[in-house]
Amino acid sequence: MPRATTDDRVALHWEETGSGEPLLLIHEFGGDSRSWHPQVAHFARRYRCLVYNARGYPPSDVPADPGAYSQQRAVADAVAVLDAAGVDTAHVIGNSMGGFCALHLGLRHPDRVRSLVVAGCGYGAHPDAADAFRATSQDLAARYDTDGAVEVARSYGASPARLQLRAKDPAGYAEHLRILAEHDVTGAALTMRGVQAARPSLYALRDELAAMAVPTLIVAGDCDDDVLDADLMLKRTLPRAGLAVLPRSGHLTNLEEPALFNGLVEQFHAQVAAGRWA
């Protein structure tokens, strides 16, 4: 079982499938590396697919120190996985929390990134929503402490932007809830407090984003209301960004519409390789 050790001595579980150009996939808060199964099954035919569990998500380590969780740490962890795999540069795909990580990876380490797919990214980013998002995040963290992962999964998994998966793929939704219910309560609570609630607003990073030259595909579901304004801002700010909005889709576009999602990524990568993503 491959392990990547970070500079603060946290061990991260990672796996690889296939061969070819490296493709790093970074999971959302409500999932783990298993949430990328439809993408790994598809892209491993032509790519070396790398998936990992973020810190706080077993079998990766679960540090008990709240200071061990932050957006900066999340980016450093992604770099640690690339280093452990012996990868200099990779195509990167992230959803939600993983989308924020992918975007910050492009900002902080553009030399390690060939392209970015940033999906479901934008919760709490708008200045008008920031205070409410932080309060909701702190409340969710407290519920992990008091109610446990199984109980949180019932309510969090039934949030409006996740119900499109239930309508489209009941078996896939059941698997999503099972993964969510297996979250480590300490890791989930500290991730929610240190990474989600404390990350900087994307709107405060517009000058940096405007200078980032990494080819970027932004993906959103049209029913994922809390990300759409931020994604439009990203499209207008990032100099090499395109925006794909999937119809009748929520927060889990890679699971709800895997064929469409994979096709968009393939087309994006082909245009990048041909030098046509100007």
Rank of each mutant, 00 (worst) to 15 (best):
A132C: 05
T89Y: 06
A132H: 03
M97P: 12
D83C: 11
D77L: 11
M97C: 05
V92W: 11
A74I: 14
V81C: 09
A102W: 08
A85H: 09
F133C: 07
H109K: 07
S96K: 01
G124T: 04
N95C: 02
H91S: 09
T89V: 10
L103A: 08
D128S: 12
D88G: 15
A90G: 06
Q71P: 09
A78N: 14
V81P: 07
A85V: 08
D77Q: 11
G94H: 10
H104Q: 12
D131I: 01
Y123C: 04
M97R: 05
D111S: 11
L107E: 02
A80M: 07
V118C: 01
H91P: 11
A90M: 08
P127T: 01
D111K: 14
A90H: 05
D83L: 02
H126W: 00
D131Y: 01
D111N: 12
P110F: 06
A78Y: 15
G124H: 04
A125V: 03
G124Y: 03
V81M: 05
H109E: 14
G99R: 09
R114W: 13
G86I: 05
D88R: 14
A132R: 02
D131G: 00
C101I: 15
N95W: 06
T89Q: 15
F133N: 01
A76C: 09
P110G: 07
L116I: 08
R108Q: 15
L116P: 10
M97K: 02
G99L: 03
N95M: 03
Q72A: 15
V92P: 12
R108K: 11
A84E: 14
A125H: 02
T89W: 06
S96L: 01
P127D: 00
D111F: 10
D83H: 06
D131C: 01
V117H: 04
A90S: 13
V113G: 07
Q71Y: 14
V113L: 11
A132P: 06
S115M: 06
H126S: 01
A80G: 04
D83P: 09
